[in-house]
């Protein structure tokens, strides 16, 4: 189908973007960074068009539904939310160094969706349980949450790398990374956005489960793992807000949090449960 062909090309665009950001960091050339941003915006535009085409194509097949219903579509949407959120942050902070740490996430999600033999990219009809407006709000909020946590992961990584920077160690790559205080503050903001979105995601998911299966919480592994993720990030917020933890401890907790996000997303498919639709 047209949409998946375009999307597989976008994968390469994102790889190119990663490469440009990396070159910018290695050679400290503004022009490379600006090129990376423009290519990323172009790739994002193409990405958006392809998702729209997929939506339209599903209606032409007579099984129209929003493109958020299987693993392929969710990965594509995950990459889309990461790029969108990253572009907003880049625009607000006027700093491009994060690009080198975040664009690989988008690239990897796209590559996994497009080239893994286990993932079916065709448009499938919705089984009755997935026919719900709650599904759409559930997917959108969850993935914005995941994307914010992805950015927080990138920022934590930058924080730990930046600590290697010492006076007189003229490493351009390290010097370009913003100072730790800014990284820490930005990381906190990403965790707040992610926590809000994840909470909304869990809420919309349980309202949907309640209307589909009759119980808003059934300790299904995916539900439980999203709760585990939520608990981890709640403890991140409290250790920072109340106990005043900063920097390294928070960065490490954010790694744990993002590992939980990834397990909620992929690992859970190896455990049995209601969400097994994501296996196809």
């Amino acid at each position: 189908m047209l949409n998946s062909t375009i999307l597989s090309y976008i994968t390469f665009v994102y790889f190119g973007v990663f490469f440009l950001y990396l070159l910018m960091m290695l050679f400290a050339r503004e022009i490379l960074g600006r090129a990376a941003t423009y290519v990323l915006i172009a790739g994002f535009a193409g990405h958006t068009v392809a998702i729209t085409i997929r939506w339209v194509e599903s209606y032409m097949l007579g099984i129209g539904h929003a493109p958020f219903s299987n693993l392929y579509e969710s990965l594509i949407f995950f990459a889309w939310t990461i790029v969108l959120l990253y572009l907003i942050v880049e625009w607000r902070t006027k700093n491009r160094t994060m690009g080198a740490f975040v664009s690989p996430l988008a690239f990897l999600a796209m590559a996994y969706a497009s080239f893994s033999p286990n993932i079916n990219s065709s448009i499938q009809p919705l089984i009755p349980a997935l026919k719900s407006n709650w599904l759409i709000s559930h997917v959108i909020t969850c993935f914005f949450g995941y994307a914010a946590f992805g950015l927080s992961f990138g920022l934590s990584l930058m924080y730990l790398i930046k600590r290697l920077d010492r006076e007189g160690r003229g490493n351009i790559f390290l010097r370009l990374i913003p100072n730790p205080v800014i990284l820490d503050e930005l990381n906190y903001q990403m965790v707040v956005i992610g926590f809000l979105m994840l909470t909304l995601g869990i809420i919309t998911g349980s309202v949907w489960a309640h209307s589909a299966w009759g119980s808003y919480w059934s300790w299904d592994p995916k539900e439980t793992w999203s709760l585990i993720t939520w608990l981890i990030y709640a403890s991140v917020l409290h250790s920072r807000l109340v106990r005043g933890w900063k920097g390294k401890k928070i960065a490490v907790l954010c790694f744990v949090g993002f590992a939980c996000v990834m397990f909620t997303y992929f690992g859970v498919n190896y455990l049995a449960g209601l969400h097994s639709y994501a296996k196809s």
Binding site: L227, L231, S235, V242, C260
Partner: peptide, 24 residues
Amino acid sequence: SVRLTISLLIILAIASISGTVIPQ
């Protein structure tokens, strides 16, 4: 104490993991 809160949140998280690994 908020130290208790953080401990409880992390203990609950770890305990919940076992329930997803052992079939219920």
